[in-house]
Amino acid sequence: MRRSVFGRFLRDHLRALVGWGVGVAAVTALYSAFWPSMRDSSGAMDAYLESLPQGLLETMGWNSLSTAEGYLGATVFGLLVPALLVIAAAVLGARAIAGDEEDGGLELLLAHPVSRTGVLVQRFAALTVFVAVLGAVVFGTLLLLGPAIDIGLPADRLLAASTAVALIGLVHGAAALAVGAATGRRALALGAAAVLAVVGYLGHTLARQVEELEWLRFASAFHYALEPDPLANGFDPAPTAVLLAVPVVLVALGAAAFNRRDVGV
């Protein structure tokens, strides 16, 4: 089989994929493993939660730690796994064009009979596969651990939630890829993804409390992914479509800018 830009990029980051996969699986397993003891002490937990300010509970999404979907939604899917996926995707997205260009490798590739758009699209496809594998690791871990820790959630809802966090990662990875392609600067690409993630996270959490910040949620991938509560409600096509469309638009904008600039200077 002929080696392509897509296959090469994915193979070059296989080690990173395995590393992130292990990390994501470990975090997922660790948090969900606490579920049985959490449920057993749910009376005490609920009493404790009631003593906390209502605003904090809403902000952190700790409304119902006594149900499996509430607990997993607040821990596995609320912060740590999305954070890992955002970081993994943004690092890879920033590497894909800007990092390769700063390291000096992109010039040689673009001296071959490939188009810039082609390289960008193929590496975006590799990024998508990368993030999808990490999403599948979350899903697979919960599926395997589910019976042992008695989660009691159907597979399709676990899949919907895993897909949602993977899409959060993809949005931020695509942002890093697009900014990197437009500027050729890895630091800018990572910075843009970080700003988007922070604003997005605040838009999802804080904006629940502060009305003036409510508009932020429309710029938040976390909002589109987690607000429909996929663990409780399964797939919601409209926000999922938004999360799929945003990366495509970002990459299209990145390609337009990438095609207009000088490379490797």
């Binding site: 070059d12 390291d103 000096g104 490798g105 040689l108 001296a111 071959h112 009979p113 490939v114 188009s115």
Partner: peptide, 21 residues
């Protein structure tokens, strides 16, 4: 560009190779 690069061999002035392969 693509048609030209298909028929050209290019050696960059500052060749960087970072692959582990």
């Amino acid at each position: 560009g693509v048609a030209i690069r298909r028929r050209v061999g290019y050696l960059p002035g500052d060749l960087v190779l970072t692959s582990r392969r």
